[in-house]
Amino acid sequence: MDVLRVEGLKAFYIVESAGEQRAVKAVNDVSLSVRENEVLGIAGESGCGKSTLLKSLLGNIRPPLRHMGGKVTYLQGEREVDILSLGKEERQKLMWQHISYVPQGSLSVLNPVRRIGDTFRSFVGAHLEIKKEPGRFESLVKRHLEDLGLPVDTLKAYPHQLSGGMRQRVTIALATILKPRLILADEPSTALDVVVQRGVIQLLRDIQTEQRNTIVMVTHDMAIHANISDRVAIMYAGRIIEEAPVEQIFMKPLHPYTQYLIGSLPRIGDKSHRISAPGAPPSLVSLPPGCAFHPRCPQAKPICRQEIPALSLAAKEHRVACFLAAKEDADVDSTEAAGSR
């Protein structure tokens, strides 16, 4: 069952310079669906539109970002809600109890002049009636922190008194206290060292096992995807170019970009030289015609320069937006189909 469905979503940053309007096409015709109780990873290099996609999923679209088309539909119980067409109040009601968010950069997301406990109080107080029931908030927070294995004393601390890893755990605790069905996480472990990263990712995974919710995890770090994601979608220049179960992405990437991405990862015992994609990602203001990757693609064909490849099924649960791969895979598909028969 799909708990979140994105259809043809377009979100552009409209910037004006010297009287000329230009559109930065950060999210350009993205469609994807997220199933209940899975971890969907979204990967891609800096500036490919990952964070903007997440902002749009949260309905947090404010100038200069603008919604240019498409729908973001959440399944809440039996009801389907398009978050981008909701009013502010209704969207706020949906937040934290149904959809929650773990942001990037945990130092700057906590109010520096208030204690952690006060931040919990204002976040919980926005959704639950806690003023009339003394003790309800205290016991809720205490139980939640204990469940996550965080010291209750943290509530008395100010953000700057905590370590980076602790702060990130606190934001995760803050995001999950109302047991949301969906957690959207934006680079939750990026600013941390590897050892702490592991703890933070483990914490998210434990919460997911415990609360049985769905996670959409945005990070450029493929190791984290290998660790936690069930499926991975690769973004390039504002579009999803490949989407497959995590083993498929690592073992049998189809898009040339994904192949470079996976090929550049270090492997234990393999000392051969790693090759990354040549060149740099295109500017989102003036995208090349056709497939946005063609200027960097060694196998580019004439059609790649003219038409934008659609994201189409290449194998079971494996979608890719590439003229080369789709063709190759039609064969693979038929042989696979023949083999299974």
Binding site: N60, M95, S100, S108, V109, N111, P112, F123
Partner: peptide, 12 residues
């Protein structure tokens, strides 16, 4: 600031 945007997203 991030902490204000975050609180707004969270529906505070």
């Amino acid at each position: 600031e991030d902490y204000i945007v975050y609180a707004q997203i969270a529906g505070v």
